[in-house]
Amino acid sequence: METKVDITNEKIDLLYAEMEKHKQKSGPLMPTLHSAQRIFGCIPIEIQKIISKELDISVARINGVVTFYGHFSVVPKGKNIISVCLGTACYVKGSGGILDTVSHELKISVGETTDDGLFTLEGTRCIGACGLAPVFMINGEVYGNASVQMVKDIIAKYKT
């Protein structure tokens, strides 16, 4: 599941430009990491090194923040990100089964990306849609009152 990170000079220039803005304010690390995650789709060590030099923060410290938050990733995420809510309400309404279905269908476990780079599976905390439990998201779009069949159909749609 090694998907190559696309690090082009344009993207790096873009990161530098955004860092320049973030440096104007105090605490530039978090916004910079958000920029990097958006630009590259992940924050591998090469990118952490660039940030380290620019912000004078050690690579280990940056990596500590990157690996602490679920939103950041050191390996590339897939084209489509499926996040299954594992908050209390969703969980008691059966989101565990939905997670297992996705995992089985795509042959990946939580945090992994399919070989073709199409899907990444994530388990997420409560997303505030408990009334629709169980819910899952694909690329930020919420699907409520989910069922096993429903998630199978939607995956099939995204595959084509």
């Binding site: 060590i45 952490q48 923060i57 280990a60 990596n63 500590g64 690996t67 602490f68």
Partner: peptide
């Protein structure tokens, strides 16, 4: 230098260089 730091969080936390 800051070579060492915490990696990951919760029960998976370990100390070392990045990754």
């Amino acid at each position: 230098l800051g070579i060492l730091n915490f990696n990951h969080r919760g029960s998976e936390t370990y100390v070392g260089p990045a990754l």
